[in-house]
């Protein structure tokens, strides 16, 4: 029997439900299912999937949050994985060198060379689990744990759009220039967000990204 998810409060603005266990696509499909269900609840302003977790923003914070939490746990237990027929995009990546200023840190942490890191990183098909961080940014599942590298001690104030980076057991591509606590190992170019389109994002949860090695700079 699975453990109940952990629920915690994010101030009086929102609550966070975190599923137990290893990060998996099946759990994420349950998160998508729960998200679409609770979005219709009257006390929920918006439901936002993360990596095997779900944030609920309140319209008005309840004086007693326990009934809402109990209802959420019940909905989680009843939730069935929601499969999405998404599309796949391929992104050519230059790994290392100026395009990947933190490649050396990932090499030092993993004991692998740049070529091996690029090959391991570009091998899987990465499903988009969720969007977050900044407009159009995709959180991807399925990174090989051999190249997992902790987030940086202090976030970097500016990394460029197209930066391919690793943070803990996760990887992703920056959609625009901005601060980041992740390790940048390479670079690609793609427009992930257009405010004039509906929806404004290139990818949705359930779509997938494949990285292709364009070159590795040692």
């Amino acid at each position: 029997m699975d453990h109940d998810p952990v629920v915690s409060m994010l101030g009086t603005t929102a609550l966070l439900l975190e599923a137990e266990g290893e990060t998996s696509l099946e759990t994420q499909q349950k998160i998508w299912s729960l998200s679409s269900q609770v979005s219709a609840w009257p006390d929920v302003l918006e439901a936002v999937p993360g990596m095997n977790n779900l944030m609920l923003c309140f319209r008005q914070p309840p004086f007693d949050p326990q009934p809402l939490i109990a209802r959420l746990q019940d909905a989680w237990r009843a939730a069935k994985p929601m499969t999405v027929e998404g599309r796949t995009i391929e992104l050519p990546v230059v790994y290392g060198g100026e395009a990947g200023p933190h490649m050396a840190d990932v090499m030092a942490h993993t004991g692998l060379d740049a070529r091996a890191i690029a090959e391991i990183h570009s091998a899987p098909l990465y499903p988009v689990y969720a969007l977050g961080s900044h407009p159009g940014y995709c959180y991807l599942g399925g990174m090989d744990h051999r190249i997992a590298t902790p987030r940086r001690k202090t976030p970097v104030l500016k990394i460029p759009g197209g930066a391919v980076s690793i943070g803990g057991f996760q990887t992703g591509v920056s959609a625009s220039e901005g601060p980041s606590g992740w390790n940048t190992i390479g670079s690609t170019s793609m427009s992930f967000f257009d405010v004039t389109k509906q929806p404004p994002t290139l990818l949705q949860p359930g779509d997938a990204i494949r990285f292709r090695i364009e070159r590795v700079v040692a």
Binding site: T13, M51, N53, M55, A130, G132, P155, G168
Partner: peptide, 28 residues
């Protein structure tokens, strides 16, 4: 694992000095 956050959340990166998320903070 990456999760939703809101303005007001006080994160502590590995450097040990807190960062309070403000209105333009990333949503995760």
């Amino acid at each position: 694992r990456s999760h939703g956050i809101v303005p007001g959340v006080i994160q502590v990166p590995h450097g040990g000095q807190p960062i309070i998320q403000m209105r333009d903070a990333q949503p995760s």
